[in-house]
Amino acid sequence: MNRPETTEKNLKTEHKSGVEMDEALVKIKTRALSVYYGATQALKQVDMDIKKQAVTALIGPSGCGKSTFLRVFNRMNDMIPDTRLEGKATIDGIDIYSPNINVVTLRRLVGMVFQKSNPFPKTIFDNVAYGPKLNGVTNRSQLEEIVERSLIQAAIWDEVKDRLHRSAMELSGGQQQRVCIARALAVSPEILLMDEPASALDPISTAKIEELIHDLKKEYTIVIVTHNMQQAARVSDYTGFFLLGELIEFDKTERIFEVPKDKRTEDYITGRFG
């Protein structure tokens, strides 16, 4: 995979968000993206460039549209009746809402980890092998290999290797969540969407997940929704602040947290509201 180095010289494009990013490094791009649930507008004209192999955090108070934004990229919003989308969302320059897009293939490319760990009531092995099996992998040894690799990547292999054929429901919340991450990784996605992956976990499990995110960004483009400001600051390279469906500010994480341009961003991250 070619990974062009970022230098001050090749930063070309500039958007109202304030981030300058080389086109070649942009994985996901949205332009004037609006999402409606029936008559309610959940997202208003969002422009954002999400960088390859980096972690982009989405922060903002509840109901600000950050989860909706996240679910745009694997088209999970499609499943909610009466959802309408305007504007453009592209991955590698391909419009993912164009009519000839195969949603099933898209979702294999864009993995997702949910807020509440949701392992299937199956064995740990079958949980992780679920995606590969959908893709037609039936060879047992190949499956075993994928399962092992994914569990190692998700930093849970050592804890579960002796009980792969026990139910995933027996694991602790933090372990379940990492099995869910392994499950998402098993289909070799390019993008990983994480919807508050650590919000239901204790501090130790949270630290493990954060460490994991840090390792995963070497290979994946990660977009993470979080309520936890410190978490955003710790794990992400870029941060977008949403308020009432609007992207208020989007910038490098350190700039958002150190020198926010917008008063509302400053108020939010300093805890004055939200």
Binding site: M79, V104, G111, F114, N118, Y130, R183, A184
Partner: peptide, 15 residues
């Protein structure tokens, strides 16, 4: 059956 399980399956690219 919790909706979360169906979502997990769809998110993995299941029809």
């Amino acid at each position: 059956v919790p909706k979360a399980l169906r979502e997990a399956s769809y998110a993995l690219g299941a029809t």
